[in-house]
Amino acid sequence: MNPLAGYLLVAALLFAIGLAGALTRRNAILVLIGIELMLNAANLNLIAFWRYGPHPEALTGMMFAIFSIAVAAAEAAVGLGLVISIHRHAKTTDLDAMNRMKG
């Protein structure tokens, strides 16, 4: 197993863990936490490919990861702001209870 594959597997595992968390926890904030984990796993993927890929001097992977971090931060801010707003409205962050869009 080459190093790249290892890093990729770790990233995959982290991604799956994050997904599991996003899918199974009741609290909305924990869903966001899961999402952060997934994003981070993707970042790891990017850096790993940058390091073991053909043209590291192009800095593509690194740049992508940096932008990803920036975007993730913005998204976390907005998402958490939303959660706070929802909590203010519904007095709870339990996702199972929020089914107003039920068809």
Partner: peptide
């Protein structure tokens, strides 16, 4: 079929995944 539309985010996420 309408039972798919639970109105809950996590359900949709699951389907997506």
């Amino acid at each position: 079929l309408s039972r798919v539309q639970t109105g809950r985010v996590q359900t949709y996420l699951r389907l997506l995944a």
